[in-house]
């Protein structure tokens, strides 16, 4: 659970994205694309889920990339190389379903820190023989991460920024729509804020293209023992941590998820102000 190295990938206009490489022998051997870990930064900390962005079984390390959005991610971001996490458990959740393995042409769409979450999936889908197109977006140039890494593995990479400071100006979902208009794709894989995933799901549906999303429901134990992470998919209640985190985008009750993810907004703001100001 020791932090081997730390790197600040982006730090601009109040947004900080941090990369940690952790010693995690057992997890590094088991981790597959699409899976996540639960981290407790300190003894009094929360259990928060973070995607396993990379795993190196030889070096016995895993890599996490996260944005400092609130207290728990800020506490984690304040640690340095050599520090130990209080708890690290995984790999959790299902690996990216390899029913997708050789499905053909895939577009992966992500914005902000979501780019970190699609990276391992893009890599694994490429290795499985698919043609990979990636659409990544950020608010502004300084906040764009993993562009080079994705260019190394993907067949095509499109970059958009909200302010037009780099790549095309606009949103990832608009770029997705354009690509689907221009050509046939077999699958859309998407990670990002809920409104973006919802929009991407609508667009994919309108082109009759299958879409998969990795959901970011709130979690506690992340082993199926609390139901905090429950989402409604095709009218059925699922636990994101053990049944997901990936689901068919088409069938998700987005409104419910969006509301549930705001359940602690007041408390989170309060504690973050209290401890980080």
């Amino acid at each position: 659970m020791k932090i081997i190295s730390k790197e600040v990938l982006a730090d601009c206009a109040g947004t900080r994205i941090v990369k940690l490489t952790l010693s995690a022998p057992e997890i590094s051997r088991k981790a597959k694309a699409g899976q996540f870990v639960v981290v407790m930064a300190c003894e009094k900390g929360e259990r928060i889920p973070l995607t396993i962005v990379g795993a190196d079984s030889k070096a016995e390390t895993i890599t996490l990339i996260f944005q400092e959005t609130g207290l728990s991610t800020k506490t984690l971001g304040a640690l340095s190389a050599g520090d130990n996490l209080y708890a690290l458990v995984g790999p959790l959740g299902h690996a990216t379903d390899h029913g997708l393995a050789a499905c053909g042409k895939v577009i992966l769409v992500a914005g902000g820190v979501g780019i970190a979450e699609i990276y391992p999936v893009a890599k694994s889908l490429k290795q499985a023989g698919n043609n990979i197109t990636v659409v990544i977006g950020a608010k502004t140039k300084e906040l764009l991460i993993l562009e080079k890494e994705l260019k190394d593995i993907a067949d095509k990479v499109y970059v958009v920024t909200d302010d037009g400071s780099y790549g095309r100006k606009g949103f990832t979902t608009a770029a997705l729509e354009e690509l689907l208009k221009q050509g046939e794709y077999d699958l859309v894989y998407n990670v990002g804020p809920i409104p973006m995933m919802k929009k991407a799901a609508e667009i994919s549906r309108s082109f009759n293209t299958r879409a998969i999303v990795s959901l970011n429901a709130l979690m506690v134990d992340a082993t199926g023992m609390c139901g905090c992470c429950r989402v409604t998919v095709a009218g059925q209640v699922k636990f994101s941590c053990v049944d997901g985190p990936e689901f068919e985008a088409d069938k998700i009750d987005w409104e419910e998820l969006e509301k549930r993810n705001c359940m602690y907004l007041d408390k989170e703001k309060h504690i973050c102000k209290l401890k980080f100001s």
């Binding site: 009094k44 900390g45 929360e46 728990s72 359940m263 408390k267 989170e268 504690i271």
Partner: peptide, 14 residues
């Protein structure tokens, strides 16, 4: 998670 000691402990409960 000792949420009854929030904010000393970081896990919230409503």
């Amino acid at each position: 998670m000792s949420a009854y000691k929030f904010p000393e402990y970081h896990t919230p409960v409503n």
